[in-house]
């Protein structure tokens, strides 16, 4: 399953960059975290869209509808299987070796990303400025640095260097704690996480088969602490590591309309 996940993550990265040479620049909000200021961006970052609408003091019905449809279908599956910034975190995690644990062990804290989401929107509205975009580490990696090579005629000001600093801090955190951004800070993860309890695709635990060894919880990058939380909590990215680790074959990822 992990090979399939890596493959889909790279395919998603390629699809996110279909706007290369202005081939396919759409106004469709993407279901993951990716900067639309990237020279190759094909989709709009929903968090950027939400901020712009907060500045305009309008409701982004269209973007909410698109993101809602993505969330309703797959929940945070997008985070685990498609998000380019999630891919970056997984690649950084490889530096710790395949089986290596996090350098720093942090407990699951579900609410921080919701605070970030709320703060991002309030600050954008109050300052009439997309301030989060100016420090966003995904924007640093996918937009600011590529633009440095593509847009040679531009002058690079203060916020370019601010971006470099935030990216450097983020990368250090990713080395220390796997999927740090997804677990604690991602506002897009917060939005999609709201759909986890109702999404059609879910990770389901068969408690008749489960031996309660909790091997699944020990490998969980989201640090979910209870078996009962796997199906519906806002943190599960449906990455499938629990499925791989389950010796009793009690965990499955499946789509079902009725439960």
């Amino acid at each position: 399953m992990s090979k399939l996940r890596w493959t889909i993550q790279f395919i998603a990265l390629a699809i996110a960059n279909l706007g290369l040479f202005r081939v396919l620049e759409t106004g469709i909000p993407c279901p993951f975290f990716y900067c639309y200021a990237c020279p190759a961006a094909a989709f709009a970052c929903p968090i950027g869209v939400f901020q712009n609408y907060a500045i305009l003091e309008q409701v982004p019905f269209y973007a909410i509808g698109v993101v809602g449809l993505f969330g309703l279908a797959l929940g945070r599956f997008w985070c685990g299987w498609a998000c380019p910034f999630g891919l970056v975190q997984d690649l950084v995690s490889l530096t710790r070796g395949r089986r290596a644990r996090n350098k720093i062990r942090l407990p699951r804290v579900a609410w921080t990303k919701f605070v970030v989401l709320l703060a991002v929107l309030i600050v954008a509205w109050a300052a009439a400025e997309t301030l989060f975009c100016k420090i966003c580490p995904a924007g640093s990696l996918f937009a600011a640095i590529p633009q440095r090579f593509v847009s040679t005629e531009f002058h690079f000001g203060t916020f370019f260097y601010v971006h470099l600093v935030t990216l450097a801090i983020a990368l250090v955190l990713f080395v220390l704690v796997g999927r740090f951004w997804c677990r604690f800070l991602c506002p897009m993860g917060a939005v999609l996480g709201l759909f986890n309890p109702v999404s059609i695709l879910k990770v389901r635990v068969d408690f008749d088969k489960c031996s309660h060894c909790e091997d699944c919880l020990s490998v969980c990058p989201a640090k979910i602490e209870k078996l009962e939380d796997i199906e519906s909590c806002t943190d599960c990215t449906r990455c499938g590591r629990c499925i791989e680790s389950c010796g009793a074959d009690a965990i499955k990822i499946s789509a079902a309309l009725r439960r």
């Binding site: 712009n52 600011a144 633009q147």
Partner: peptide, 13 residues
Amino acid sequence: LVTVLCLSCIGIG
């Protein structure tokens, strides 16, 4: 938002 580059956001101008 995708086609018009947000120059100030990424610190270029």
